[in-house]
Amino acid sequence: MALSVKGKIDQILEPQSGVSRAGKEWKKQDFVIETDEQFPRKVCFTLFGDKVDMVSDIAQGQEVEVSFNLESREYNGRWFTNATAWKIDQVSEDNNLPEPPPEFRMEDVPPEPDDNAANDLPF
């Protein structure tokens, strides 16, 4: 299930790493965003492997949109849910504003019509 949510970076937690039972090295990093809803919610996301590098370009308080997969799994009769991020886009604060028109300059004013040019009309 692929989802996305926007919010501000609340925390970037310390990276973790280790070796699995199969002998493979792993690394992960969690980060928390706070949504911009009427009742803000904090959501913790996890990055795995090479995706950990995505948080190096973001800072606390920055507005982002996180694309993630939501997955649950059972362990010893209990269910655990992970929000695994796979993309983080930085959101500019003026993203919703229209682009302003170009500034007016005196060179933009067309020249006054010449009286002789008015007599050259073909009709």
Rank of each mutant, 00 (worst) to 15 (best):
M1F: 04
A2H: 04
L3N: 09
L3T: 05
S4N: 15
V5Q: 15
K6L: 07
G7S: 00
K8D: 07
K8Q: 07
P15N: 10
S17Q: 15
S17Y: 10
V19K: 11
A22V: 05
G23T: 02
G23I: 06
K24P: 03
W26H: 00
K28S: 10
Q29H: 08
F31S: 00
F31Y: 02
E34I: 12
T35I: 03
T35F: 03
D36C: 07
Q38F: 08
K42F: 09
V43Y: 07
F45Q: 01
T46C: 04
T46E: 01
F48D: 00
G49I: 02
K51A: 10
V52T: 00
V55C: 02
V55K: 00
S56W: 05
D57R: 14
Q60S: 06
Q62I: 03
Q62E: 15
V64D: 06
S67Q: 11
E71N: 12
S72T: 09
R73A: 05
R73F: 14
N76G: 00
G77P: 00
R78I: 08
W79Y: 09
A83C: 12
T84P: 03
T84A: 12
A85H: 08
K87I: 04
D89S: 10
Q90G: 13
V91Y: 06
V91M: 15
S92Y: 04
D94V: 01
N96W: 06
N96A: 07
P98Q: 12
E99S: 12
P100V: 12
E103I: 10
F104C: 04
D108T: 03
P111A: 14
N116C: 06
L121G: 12
F123E: 00
